[in-house]
Design a protein around this nucleic acid. Structure first.
Lengths: 151, 151
DNA sequence: TTGTTTGCAAACCTTTTGCACGTTA
DNA sequence: TAACGTGCAAAAGGTTTGCAAACAA
């Protein structure tokens, strides 16, 4: 998940919005940039904070509205780790798809990828009556740093 | 996940609470019964509603406090499907472990189990620096009923 | 008696919405 | 200019907390 990939996502996102009939608003564009500048999920508050210190601050409502629209177009994945706040990240191509490890001690969220897990889910989805379109996997436990500190 | 299994969970939960030094309060006990009487996850509101119509109604705060305590003792799993409300279900033995399918149309939550998926997660966890203690898997899509109706 | 549990109401926090104003096509 | 985008403030959930009364040990 390099910078190039994220930059492509940002430009794809803008194209998709245009095609969907959205006008090019400055706030929404800043939200896209903020999301594209990170490799893992960010909360609405994270995005807002990041932009608050930039040239142009935007309203919290605009952040939420942009996130909602991007999600509606399938450009964002919503990630919930159980702390009561939703996080969002660019939905990238299959190869860059990842899931999350959450440290139950410090709360840190770390991405991981595993091909075998993806295959198991893919095969399982074929056998279900549901028409599965996406999946989330969350592993909970103690991260290596917190494990060290406990010792 | 039969009634017997759930009954065992309820009694185990009461034992664990006693061992942890909690007194046997009537409200908490009712929350345990309410959770044990269902095979899949329930929200705090669900539990509260269920008890409201019973002999003894309890406060919402008591429901949340009981859920928090049971969670802290590892007796409950918290399930979040992305609709803004947390759900809870008994944490059962490995054999009865399941995950959730969420219908993106009607919101219905359905449990499923898959051994291969569990094996993939187990093996993956061994290779990570994190000490993984639990995992959630959520599949999203259209349930069979909603698929029929769309046609 | 002493500390725990409970219910109510108020507080909190995240997210959504109403509305007036600015901006885009 | 007509519709869309934005910011602010208020509203709307779900969840947590303060407190005084009821209760268990």
């Amino acid at each position: 998940m390099d910078h190039g990939t994220q930059a492509v996502w940002a430009s794809d996102a803008r194209d998709a919005l245009r095609r969907a009939g959205f006008r090019s608003g400055g706030s929404r564009s800043l939200v896209i940039d903020a999301l594209a500048s990170h490799s893992c999920c960010r909360s609405a508050q994270d995005v807002h904070d990041e932009l608050r210190t930039s040239d142009r601050a935007i309203g919290m409502a605009s952040v939420y509205r942009a996130l909602e629209q991007l999600q509606g177009l399938g450009l964002l994945d919503r990630v919930e780790v159980g702390d009561g706040t939703a996080r969002f990240e660019p939905r990238l191509a299959h190869d860059d798809h990842h899931h999350h490890l959450v440290c139950t001690t410090c709360g840190e969220v770390t991405p991981f990828a595993d091909r075998r897990l993806e295959e198991a889910i893919h095969d399982l989805a074929e056998r279900l009556d549901h028409q599965v379109v996406s999946h989330d996997i969350l592993l909970r436990g103690t991260c290596s740093r917190c494990r060290q500190e406990k010792k």
